[in-house]
Simulated assay, not measured.
Amino acid sequence: MEPTAPTGDQVRQAPKVLLHDHLDGGLRPATVLELAREVGHTLPEGSDTDAATLGRWFAEAADSGSLVRYLETFDHTVGVMQTGPAITRVARECVEDLAADGVVYAEIRYAPEQHVSAGLTLDEVVAAVREGFEQGTAAAEAAGHRIVVRQLLTAMRHQARSMEIAELAVAWRDRGVAGFDIAGAEAGYPPTRHLDAFEYLQRENAHFTIHAGEAFGLPSIWQALQWCGADRLGHGVRIVDDITVHDDGSVELGRLAQYVRDKRIPLEMCPASNIQTGAAASIAEHPIGLLTKLRFRVTVNTDNRLMSGTSMTAEMSSLVEAFDYGLADLRWFTINAMKSAFLPFDERLAIIDGVIKPGYAALGV
């Protein structure tokens, strides 16, 4: 640990890597407002007067302690993302916002099946996102920010389109799609319901992550890893249930926790949203502190920047305050994430050695 905590400006300037961020959870409130008026989407009463009011509504509605209630806020972001131009705009602004926050690599996930109600095909949705990412990357570069962005295609675990989305991810994997994911309410919808999709992805040498161990416990994590073969765990906070801290301070890992640590399985931790959904009581009590101390492959992420009113700078700053982390710790989180990215090895290494390490060196680490 450094003797002096990093300043807010230092955290903002530090290179960051983001593996778990939902496209439909990161819209600018002003954009939601404008698009809703364009397409005639009805926003909650009283929230549609101005961007600031709408932004507060999202934060308050998401801050319920319930994952199910948290997910309801997406009705209004997905609702305004049903045309190609709207999706491209949202994707472009996403990249611009992340680049301005110091993110140098990001994997942005979304469920194509949720954006076809106005007639778009799944391929048209992916193409619209790709166009937006390309526009955003060019705009960021013009503003002096280097960023690489890839898509993760998500299937909803309560639906039955996972094989179709898995095939879509494979079809687009050389055109900006890095991998596959399943998301949605965990309880009652185990990942094994989509086993055929995961087996297909494995046969195709494709990468995938699974939302597991957030609202549901160890069985969800165990199934994601041992039945489905996930490369990474989306959230995975409940792995702490398999760790015992004794009164004398000694720590005992159960077999699943030991496996996760030994195999260096990346944990896509999202502190702010975990508190909102009730997966953690506070930042200071978040399992990320213990898991970091035990040197699990911990990464720091935003999940849904709009709903949580957060950013990578805000997430890392909250950890600095709660756990007295220094820049060396933030560098460790960042390299963990880049090592875990669904990007070819040489490209990961180029970002670590050519961007992340020099960026932190310039800050004195």
Rank of each mutant, 00 (worst) to 15 (best):
I288T: 02
P287A: 02
R203T: 09
H246D: 07
P344I: 10
A51L: 09
G326E: 05
A86M: 02
L33G: 04
S273N: 06
E2P: 01
W332E: 14
D63T: 11
L253D: 01
D9K: 15
L54M: 10
G184P: 04
Y200E: 00
I275N: 04
A362D: 14
Y360C: 07
R173S: 05
F333N: 04
P15T: 11
E252L: 13
Q10H: 09
L327Y: 10
P85S: 07
V245I: 06
A328D: 14
Q159W: 13
G217P: 00
Y200F: 13
L122T: 03
E199P: 00
Y259W: 15
A140K: 08
Q10F: 09
A100Q: 09
E315Y: 06
V17Q: 10
T7I: 11
D241F: 02
R203M: 07
D21C: 15
I210L: 03
T192H: 10
E315P: 02
Q114C: 12
A362S: 15
G84Y: 02
T299L: 08
R157W: 01
G234K: 03
E186G: 00
E167A: 07
T209C: 08
T334H: 09
H194C: 01
V39N: 12
Q202S: 14
A62G: 15
F323N: 01
D231M: 10
A36P: 01
G25K: 11
E214V: 00
P15D: 12
A91H: 02
G213V: 01
E321G: 03
V68T: 12
D247E: 15
P344K: 13
N205D: 15
A139G: 05
T83E: 08
N336V: 10
Y105R: 14
E141S: 14
A51P: 04
V237E: 00
Y189P: 00
G278A: 08
D97R: 14
A169P: 01
V11P: 02
D242V: 03
V116S: 03
R89E: 08
V116K: 06
R255E: 14
G249E: 08
R130A: 11
G176D: 06
E315S: 05
P29R: 12
E93F: 06
Q135A: 12
V320H: 09
D174C: 05
L54Q: 07
A350M: 08
V95G: 04
A140D: 02
A230R: 07
T244W: 06
Y200T: 01
I243C: 04
F133K: 06
T310K: 10
S311V: 10
T31G: 01
V298W: 06
A160T: 12
V39F: 13
S317L: 13
H286E: 00
I182Y: 02
H41E: 12
I243R: 07
P3E: 05
L291K: 00
N205C: 09
S282T: 11
L152W: 10
A59E: 15
V365W: 10
V245L: 04
S273F: 06
T121F: 08
F133E: 05
E107F: 13
V78N: 11
V355T: 14
E38I: 07
G84K: 10
H286C: 00
